[in-house]
């Protein structure tokens, strides 16, 4: 008779990244068409005045706490989404070497840029 040792199950930390991936994907799906419509069609066609999105207006939007929060979310979440997808695509393409390094580089990049945007926005807010 074969004696089976109880199998050890190791919990994955994927829920964290999957959560960010899902949230980012949702945002991207909803916002990308709007951004293309605004910057690619409505402004070039003159339906919306280019003045509506000029530097001063955007700067004053960023200087408000809610504007800063919106920009942070819009930049950070799609970034986590993208790098999560790149990380998994590397596996799908059969790039098996240095999986943990791939993970560090992908999520590290998303984290670093998120922190960078956060501090930048904080600087504008406290200016």
């Amino acid at each position: 008779m074969i004696f089976k040792q109880p199998k050890k199950y190791i919990r994955s930390h994927e829920p964290v990244f999957w959560g960010l991936f899902g949230a980012g994907g949702m945002l991207t799906a909803f916002l990308t068409p709007i951004m293309i419509l605004l910057t690619g069609l409505l402004i070039p066609l003159g339906i919306i005045e280019p003045e509506a999105l000029n530097y001063e207006k955007l700067h004053s939007f960023t200087s408000s706490w809610y504007g800063a929060a919106i920009i942070l979310i819009i930049v950070a979440l799609p970034l986590w989404h993208t790098l999560h997808r790149i990380f998994h695509s590397l596996h799908d393409l059969g790039v098996q070497r240095g999986r943990s390094w791939q993970q560090v580089i992908c999520y590290g990049f998303a984290f670093a840029v998120s922190v960078f945007v956060f501090t930048l926005l904080l600087q504008i807010l406290t200016m």
């Binding site: 199950y9 190791i10 919990r11």
Partner: peptide, 14 residues
């Protein structure tokens, strides 16, 4: 859920 929670559990699916 112990099986589900693993990397090779539900998280192996893309």
């Amino acid at each position: 859920m112990k099986i589900v929670n693993q990397e090779v559990g539900v998280w192996g699916c893309t």
